[in-house]
Design a protein around this nucleic acid. Structure first.
Lengths: 127, 127
DNA sequence: GCTAGTAGGTACGGATTCGTAACCAACGAG
DNA sequence: CTCGTTGGTTACGAATCCGTACCTACTAGC
């Protein structure tokens, strides 16, 4: 599947698919999360915060997000150049869903951890 | 990124990432959507409905979803075997988010279409 | 005996992806 | 005159993904 370029053959009739393709792609959620919580940021700042991402990936993801209208790119042709990225209004429309997803994800992780703990305790008791 | 197997190195501190990895993976949304709207289904039924998917992919995705606790697999060792898949309670917890995502996706698609139409009209008027 | 259908598993291979490393342009500092 | 900074781009290569094709075991139907 092409996470980056959008549809592969036919995305036919699943609007979720389009939007999830956007949100997915390796670093996307980290980028959006950072732009949301820390506000507009310059390229280097963002790169430093999204630990481990390469300039190439960051550029590519930002271009994709920009193309989808989720992120705005402000370029100042100073020397050295200054490029600031920020969430667009459309980008902020995802705040709520992302919040919900994060909440569910967190809950599930906690539940899974609890379940593992119980199972471990049972195993120990069965010794 | 490994959509299928979950984290690659560190998913560190982004619960959205975990859950989106689940929802993503090529056919996942189609599968969940079908299980949600058409209820529990057998393997072949599902395969027929999720048009174009290969048995391999369907099996793999279902196993992943099962592993994440979103889908339940009921196996009856009749001849021929009968395997029914259904959403678990956890699977249904995503109903609302998926609905919201679908709504946003649909709206954006419509907005984009409208914008393209306007642009096309402008181009035509400028001839 | 041959085919179809059920629910997959396995092997291969082309395409895609993503990380690494190198490079670029302009300029200010030393 | 070289170095560092910013915001990238490009080339390469290894890893991964996912579709195709073929295999299983069993039975029913012709």
């Amino acid at each position: 599947m092409s996470v980056t370029t959008g549809e592969r053959k036919e995305s036919a009739s699943c609007p979720m698919d389009f939007i999830l393709r956007m949100l997915m792609g390796p670093w996307t959620t980290y980028i959006l999360y950072n732009l949301k919580t820390h506000g507009p940021q310059r390229f280097g700042e963002l790169k430093r915060r999204v630990q481990g991402i390469s300039a190439k990936m960051l550029t590519e993801r930002l271009r994709t997000l920009e193309g989808a209208g989720l992120v705005r790119r402000d370029y100042e042709a100073t020397i050295p150049p200054k490029v600031t990225y920020s969430l667009t209004q459309r980008g902020h429309e995802l705040d709520e869903v992302m919040g919900t997803l994060a909440e569910i994800g967190t809950r599930w992780e906690a539940e899974d951890a609890a379940r593992r703990a119980v199972r471990a305790a049972e195993l120990k008791a069965a010794e």
